[in-house]
Design a protein around this nucleic acid. Structure first.
Lengths: 110, 110
DNA sequence: CATTAATGCAACTTTTTGGTTGCGTATTAT
DNA sequence: ATAATACGCAACCAAAAAGTTGCATTAATG
């Protein structure tokens, strides 16, 4: 049985990957389900292709995108699994907080 | 009407705050609803008190934590609002992705 | 009042990040 | 075959983040 609540390292990786406007914008570009090449993702940004490449590597390390090389270009695709895990993690935190609050409420009012 | 694709600067702040194991651990310590002082939060970490203080400032700037000075000590409390906003944001991204995928599916399958 | 505990503040060092430039390599197109 | 396209890789740079040390301040304690 894995207790996800005590593995903040992997979650932190995902959060850190999401904690940059450029990377968030890249994710939004891919969240429509279509894949895109590095050149495609670089167009529309003032940054260089290599900067975008680095950001894509960060996203890939966090598992938020998947890379597959087709021909001479790297096609990147959105990967929703880490998002779901992070949502589940936040759910647990919220529930823990709400449960604690209701217990405190009972203690004070009771 | 806010468009989900609009550049989320505030969200990035919260994600960046969550993107550090030390800060995640601090949040977990506070997510039981009880407040804690800096000394209390520093105990159990190998970092110095000042390092913890800096992390708490980051969390406070992101709105994830509230500080109130009582006597000579600073009491910190968990603040769930940004968590909820981030969850709502992730919901929008997930739905956008799933909707796009079903549209693609319809397009491909005819 | 002297002492101790809890913290705030500022300077400084080290590491990490975000970004660029330059160059080499593999495809695709002409 | 040649040229243009799309990358990968490495070195390098600047700025921000993470962390420490030192000292001043404020509040509780005996």
């Amino acid at each position: 049985m894995e207790r996800p609540g005590h593995l903040p390292v992997q979650q932190a990786l995902v959060f850190a990957a999401l904690g940059d406007p450029t990377r968030l914008a890249l994710l939004m570009q891919l969240s429509d389900g279509r894949t895109s090449s590095i050149a495609g993702l670089s167009g529309g940004s003032k940054l260089t292709r290599q900067a975008i490449t680095k950001h894509l590597h960060v996203l890939e390390t966090a598992g938020l995108v998947m890379r597959s090389k087709v021909g001479r270009e790297s096609q990147y695709a959105f990967r929703p699994e880490p998002i779901e895990e992070v949502r589940a993690y936040l759910d647990r935190v919220s529930h823990q907080w709400e449960d604690a609050l209701s217990r405190l409420r009972v203690f004070v009012e009771g």
